[in-house]
Computed example of a mutant assay.
Amino acid sequence: MPIWRNIEKKQFSPIYLLYGTEAFLINETKQKLIHSVLTEEEMDFNYSVYDLEETPVETALEEAETFPFMGEKKLVILHNPVFLTAERSKDKVEHNVKKLEEYVADPAPYTILVLTAPYEKLDERKKITKLLKKNAEVMEANKLHDKELKTWLRARAAANEVQIDEEALEHFLIIAGTNLMMLASEMDKLSIYARDEQRITREIVDQLTARSLEQDIFALVDKVVTGKIEGAFRIYYDLLKLNEEPIKILAVIANQFRLIYQTKELSRKGYGQQQIAGFLKVHPFRVKLAIGQSKNFSDEQLAAIMGMLADSDLQMKTSGMAKPLIVEMFLFKLQSLIK
C-alpha cells in the first residue's frame, strides 16, 4: 500500500483519513504511524486520542494546534467522526465542523492529525468530506479482493524476510480463510518457521496453518465434489474430535451451498466477482472459491441439496436421531446425488 511506504520513509502528511470496515487495516496503519512518528519518550507528551462520540471535535483541534513538547511532531488521533457519514448522530455531542473545515484547509505543520472512520461509506456531499478527500492522505480500508489480498500477504512475508511460493499462497488462502487478523498471525508464524530457508512452501503451509471451520467445510465439500468421500468423512470426524457441534457443522455446510447457489445464479446474470461479493456482503476470495465449486453442480442438483439440508436441519431439531449420524446421512446422500 502506497500510504504505508510513505509512512515507512517518514514522508508524513499533516492529515490522514482512514475509513472503511476492515478494522485490522485501519489499526495496523495507525500503529505504523505511531511507531514512525514518535519515539517512546515522546509518546507521553505528544500523543493524544479522542473519541468523537464523547468529545467535541473542536476540543481535539485545540490539542492539535498546541506546539509539541520535547519533540518535533505530535500525533492526534480522532476516532468515530460520524459527521462524515449520512447517519444522524445518536449521541449528545455537538461538533463545530466549521472549525475542522478551517483546520483541514490550513493544518498545523507540527501535528499529524489522523481521523479513523469505521464506516463503509462517507457522505461525499458534505463540504468536510470533500475537503478531507482533497487535502488529506486517504486510505479506504475495505475488504481486499483476491489480488490485493495476495499483495498484502506477500508484503507481510517480505517484512519478515521470507518469500512465499505462489502455489503456497493460493493454498494458504484456501485453508486459512480471509480474516486479516488471523491471516497476519498465521503468516508471521509461517515466516518464523521458514526463516532459515527464507521460503514458505505449500508443505509448510499444510503442516503449520490453522484451519477455520469455514475452510474445513469448504475442503469437505470439495472432497465430496471430487469423489473423495473418505477424505470428506475424515474431515468431518476430525471436526467432531475438536468438539464442533454437528448442528453447527450442518449450518456451515448449508451456508457454503447457499453461497454456491447464489454465485452460480448471479454469474449467470452477468455479475462479476467483485459485484457478487458486494451484493452478498461476503469476501471476494470466498466468492472466487464458490464460483469454482458451482461449476460442479447443475441447478437441479443444487435445489435438491438445499432441500436435503432443510430436511437434515429439521431432523436435528425434532427427531431423536443422533445428531452426528444426521450429518453422516446427508454426506452419503450428497455423494449419491452428484455421482
Rank of each mutant, 00 (worst) to 15 (best):
F332S: 11
K269F: 12
E170M: 08
E230F: 09
V224G: 03
F285R: 00
V205T: 03
E140S: 08
N179S: 09
F45Y: 14
I3L: 14
E102S: 12
E186C: 06
Y110F: 14
T263R: 03
S294R: 03
M139K: 03
V282T: 15
L337P: 02
A64W: 00
R125E: 10
Q11Y: 01
L122V: 10
E148Q: 15
D106T: 11
S191G: 07
P246F: 07
S294Y: 08
T201C: 00
E53Q: 07
H79I: 01
R154V: 04
K189R: 15
A23K: 10
K9Y: 05
H79K: 12
A303Y: 01
K74C: 02
L75G: 04
G270F: 03
E54F: 00
T263P: 06
L61D: 00
S191M: 07
A251H: 04
D106C: 13
L240A: 11
L337M: 12
I164C: 08
L173I: 12
E328T: 07
E72A: 09
H283L: 03
L144S: 05
V252R: 02
P109D: 11
S89Y: 05
E42T: 01
I128D: 00
Q275F: 08
K248A: 15
L240I: 13
I204H: 10
E166P: 07
L132C: 05
Q163F: 05
L250D: 02
R125M: 08
E197L: 10
M43E: 09
R199K: 15
D313Y: 05
A194V: 11
N46H: 00
T66W: 02
F233E: 06
K127I: 10
I291Y: 04
M181I: 13
F45S: 04
N27M: 07
T178N: 12
I204S: 10
N255S: 15
F257S: 04
Y47L: 05
K133Q: 14
T226P: 03
E186G: 04
I175K: 06
